[in-house]
């Protein structure tokens, strides 16, 4: 499998939250409640990368950037990676894989159930990102991958409900999400620049290689 330049750049970009967290941890810069800090960081990384992946289609349409299609796959998988990490930090590091504690938490905290459903919905999307499966599914692949809208909404609700009082970041994320959704609906989805300037074409070609 050969990666495009765009994908390599996206991959490196997606490593930033992980590397930043490892660096903070190494320098003892995580908060006094480091596990909660790790939970928050991994969850935020998942949501932010998910939102960036949802920005690919509108940007592609607007600026005729076909190079963003393969990039979107890397972003989606990276979001899945952070979501799994988030889940493992919560169940493993925080709740020590103690099924009694975890079941009790799931029973009491609705936002945890939303997060879990979002994660489970990501599973089929991650699996079907394999090119062979993608080809076999054909047009059904597109239908299946519309689940991303549902799971992103769930993940946003999850983060909103997890906040104690300060819901600014979840609200901003939701606002961004709504804009990205609006841009998928005609007539907004039909808007694009009529002729792409040369430099954009060059960038697109460069990123596609």
């Amino acid at each position: 499998m050969k990666l495009t330049r765009g994908q390599i750049i996206a991959f490196i970009f997606c490593l930033i939250p992980l590397l930043a967290t490892i660096t903070s941890w190494g320098f003892g810069k995580l908060s006094a409640n480091p596990i909660q800090d790790l939970t928050l960081r991994s969850g935020q990384a998942a949501i932010r990368i998910l939102l960036i992946s949802l920005a690919c289609t509108p940007l592609k349409n607007l600026f005729h950037l076909n190079s963003l299609i393969p990039v979107q796959k890397v972003l989606g998988l990276a979001a899945f990676f952070y979501a799994v990490l988030h889940f493992l930090i919560f169940t493993g590091l925080d709740y020590e894989f103690n099924p009694l504690w975890i079941m009790a938490e799931l029973a009491q905290k609705p936002f945890l159930r939303l997060g879990l459903i979002a994660l489970l919905l990501m599973l089929p999307l991650a699996v079907t990102s394999l090119r062979k499966l993608q080809a076999r599914l054909g047009s059904r692949w597109n239908q299946l991958h519309r689940l991303v809208y549902v799971l992103t909404a769930l993940a946003l609700a999850h983060s909103y409900l997890a906040a104690k009082g300060d819901v600014l970041i979840p609200l901003i994320s939701t606002f961004v999400f709504l804009i990205l959704m609006l841009l998928r609906i005609p007539p907004l989805s039909k808007i694009s620049i009529s002729s792409s300037p040369g430099c954009l074409k060059k960038i697109d070609r460069y990123l596609l290689q």
Partner: peptide
């Protein structure tokens, strides 16, 4: 008595790794 969104059954003592 759980908070409507969070359980209050366990806690993390700052500086400790377990609950």
């Amino acid at each position: 008595v759980p908070h409507p969104r969070w359980s209050q059954a366990t806690e993390r003592r700052i500086g400790e790794s377990g609950r």
